[in-house]
Deep mutational scan, measured.
Amino acid sequence: TFELKGKVGKVVKIAEDHYLVEVEGDKWIAYSDEKLSLGDRVMVVDVDGLKLKAKRIP
């Protein structure tokens, strides 16, 4: 999973306390310091076990 750092994905679902992000065809649980919206493009900035930390990108 460490190779996911720096990869770009898309928010495909918003849950109460996390997001579901699709990166290279796989879906991952993600969290972010900022509020994300459905369809936002994100970059993986860190990997915490099986969770990704994501940041919105333009």
Rank of each mutant, 00 (worst) to 15 (best):
T1H: 15
T1D: 15
T1G: 15
F2I: 15
F2T: 15
F2N: 15
F2H: 15
F2L: 15
E3Y: 06
E3F: 06
E3R: 02
E3Q: 04
E3G: 02
L4G: 14
L4V: 14
L4A: 05
K5A: 14
K5L: 15
K5I: 15
K5Q: 14
K5Y: 15
G6D: 09
G6Q: 01
G6M: 02
G6K: 01
K7H: 04
K7T: 03
K7P: 02
K7C: 09
K7E: 06
V8A: 07
V8E: 14
V8F: 11
V8I: 13
V8C: 14
V8W: 05
G9V: 07
G9Q: 00
G9W: 01
G9M: 07
G9P: 00
G9L: 13
K10H: 10
K10F: 12
K10Q: 12
K10R: 13
K10L: 13
K10P: 05
V11Y: 00
V11H: 00
V11T: 05
V12G: 02
V12M: 11
V12D: 04
V12Q: 05
V12A: 06
V12T: 09
V12R: 06
K13C: 09
K13R: 12
K13T: 10
K13H: 10
K13I: 08
K13D: 10
K13Q: 10
I14D: 08
I14L: 14
I14P: 02
I14N: 05
I14G: 04
I14K: 07
I14H: 06
I14S: 08
A15Q: 12
A15W: 14
A15I: 14
A15P: 03
A15E: 11
A15V: 14
E16P: 12
E16G: 14
E16C: 11
D17W: 11
D17V: 09
D17C: 09
D17Y: 11
D17I: 10
D17E: 11
D17R: 10
H18M: 13
H18I: 12
H18S: 10
Y19G: 01
Y19A: 07
Y19R: 00
Y19W: 08
L20G: 04
L20I: 13
L20S: 07
L20Q: 08
L20P: 00
L20H: 13
L20N: 05
V21L: 14
V21H: 00
V21E: 00
E22R: 07
E22I: 13
E22F: 12
E22T: 11
E22C: 10
E22A: 07
E22P: 00
E22W: 09
E22S: 07
V23S: 03
V23E: 01
E24K: 04
E24S: 06
E24C: 14
G25R: 07
G25D: 07
G25Y: 07
G25C: 08
G25T: 06
G25K: 06
D26A: 14
D26S: 14
K27E: 10
K27L: 10
K27S: 11
K27Q: 12
W28R: 02
W28N: 02
W28D: 01
W28C: 02
W28Y: 14
W28Q: 02
I29N: 10
I29C: 09
I29D: 10
I29H: 13
I29A: 11
A30R: 00
A30C: 05
A30Y: 01
A30I: 04
A30Q: 01
A30D: 00
A30H: 01
Y31C: 12
Y31S: 11
Y31I: 12
Y31Q: 09
Y31R: 07
S32Q: 02
S32Y: 01
S32K: 05
S32H: 02
S32L: 03
D33V: 09
D33H: 08
D33C: 09
E34K: 04
E34F: 04
E34M: 06
K35C: 10
K35H: 09
K35A: 11
L36I: 04
L36G: 00
L36P: 02
L36V: 05
L36W: 13
L36Y: 03
L36Q: 01
L36M: 09
S37V: 13
S37N: 11
S37W: 14
S37E: 12
S37T: 12
S37H: 13
S37M: 12
S37P: 02
L38C: 09
L38G: 04
L38P: 09
L38Y: 09
G39W: 14
G39I: 04
G39N: 13
G39E: 10
G39A: 11
D40V: 06
D40H: 06
D40L: 04
D40E: 06
D40W: 07
R41F: 14
R41Y: 13
R41M: 13
R41P: 12
R41C: 13
V42F: 11
V42T: 03
V42K: 00
M43C: 14
M43V: 14
M43N: 03
M43S: 04
M43P: 00
M43Y: 05
V44H: 01
V44R: 00
V44T: 02
V44M: 05
V45D: 07
V45L: 06
V45Q: 04
V45H: 03
V45A: 05
D46W: 02
D46S: 05
D46R: 03
D46M: 03
V47C: 07
V47Y: 07
V47S: 07
V47M: 07
V47G: 04
V47W: 09
D48R: 05
D48C: 15
G49W: 04
G49H: 06
L50F: 14
L50P: 07
L50G: 07
L50M: 14
L50K: 08
K51R: 12
K51S: 09
K51M: 09
K51Q: 06
L52H: 01
L52Q: 01
L52K: 01
L52Y: 02
L52N: 01
L52V: 09
K53Y: 08
K53G: 03
K53L: 05
K53N: 04
K53T: 07
A54I: 15
A54E: 00
A54T: 15
A54D: 00
K55N: 05
K55F: 03
K55D: 05
K55R: 07
K55H: 03
R56E: 02
R56T: 04
R56G: 05
I57L: 12
I57Q: 06
I57F: 09
P58S: 11
P58E: 12
P58F: 12
P58M: 12
